[in-house]
Design a protein around this nucleic acid. Structure first.
Lengths: 219, 219
DNA sequence: CCAAAAGTGTTAACAGTACACCCATGG
DNA sequence: CCATGGGTGTACTGTTAACACTTTTGG
């Protein structure tokens, strides 16, 4: 059993995904999702790590990031033959990394081995194993969730302006949104107690914008 | 790796779930979800069955039903210690069985071993392993999907009346719906080409009702 | 001044909710 | 003839989408 992680972020107003180049057969040289085996104990007492734990460990190993990163299970992929060496069942996760953390991603310099691809480019690549399927599921899941959950706040800084949050929505959805209409939705969230104004303003290329803060609920 | 299946149906206008009584330790005597190990081949060539396949096989084994039954993957559960004997990762599925097929469920007579519980009753039972969690996830998933997908048609006969479909929605949601409002939603589905009138009428306890048919799209 | 982007308001269409009411049938 | 439940209409509400408009800034 392995975990594979679709790690999303936003760079240059584009949704991107972290891929690693495989250094070993099979599919040597192809780009693949980061992932690895779940540690399972053999004894009754020590049964190893949980799935979520394994995903978090892999995420840290591949990115070097120690901040809290949003992580959610996607789907289990278990078609026989998906790995030619042996039977592998992969539990896929997706993660959302705040853009400001991207420069801290350790292997960023080693562009030959690890790279952020725009989802459009990644979709055109011939990915290893069935990772193209996993990416497609991750993308449609993220697009579903962006309107019905609070995942958009995982893609912006702690404080943000209305246009910044809109940009996150646009990157995930893949098309522009009407600023006026988004504004109304935004204020509904404020009225619902999901957001609150934060001190300070954001100096932008044009008119300065007010900043807000997401009110995190206790889980 | 195992698959566990939350098999839903509707009996007496109530959403029910099929549980089996465990005959072996651990948790001997407790009620559990039907399920079993995924067959994995050891050789490179024969890698065994896929996850969906395994779920379908278990479903047939436990119910004896050979009709096409709706089956969808829910979530992978892999907390260490969830099975005290060894490390087990379970991929959970949920299935929707048409009420008319319920009498055909093989083990129906053996009420001591296999039984349809109303979801309310099942929620109060002390289920084996972490099956209470799985059931809770299944229930919330079904409630989400009933409004946004076509799963409701998996819980009625091939042809059905408006009130019959409404009853399916009510059973899943767990509360009554306004007949007039449901009617409007229903006719929107007809206009959208999702449903069509079918010949014949249904003789009921009162005024006879028109019957409709779901137009199944090619998957 | 002008372009750009923040911020504001208006409108129409539509879906959801509550609720009043008519009508055909079996008992 | 009446209770039941299928079938019908209406009024109100909130959400969405399209779009026109004003304001404040940097260059």
């Amino acid at each position: 059993v392995t975990v594979d992680i679709v790690i999303f972020t936003i760079v240059d107003a584009e949704l991107r995904v972290l891929l690693v180049r495989r250094g070993e057969h099979p599919d040597k040289g192809k780009w693949a999702l980061p992932g690895g085996f779940v540690r399972v104990g053999t004894s009754r007492k020590a049964q190893g790590e949980g799935l979520d734990e394994a995903a978090e460990r892999e995420l840290i190993e591949e990115t070097g990031l120690h901040s809290k990163i949003y992580l959610e299970q996607l789907h289990a992929f278990g078609k026989p033959g998906r790995d030619p060496r042996m039977r592998v069942i992969s539990v896929a996760y997706y993660a959302l990394v705040r853009p400001m953390l991207v420069p801290l991603v350790r292997a960023g310099g080693d562009v030959d081995r690890v790279r952020w691809f725009s989802v459009a480019d990644a979709g055109r690549l011939d990915l290893a194993f069935d990772h193209a399927d996993i990416l497609a599921v991750a993308l449609s899941r993220a697009r579903d969730r962006i309107d019905t959950s609070t995942i958009a706040f995982e893609l912006v800084a702690d404080t943000f302006t209305i246009p910044e949050l809109r940009a996150a929505h646009e990157a995930v959805k893949g098309h522009p949104l009407d600023p006026g209409n988004f504004r109304k939705r935004f204020f509904r969230m404020v009225e619902d107690g999901l957001l609150e104004p934060a001190p300070g303003k954001r100096i932008t290329a044009s008119k300065p914008a007010r900043v807000y803060r997401f009110i995190r609920r206790q889980p």
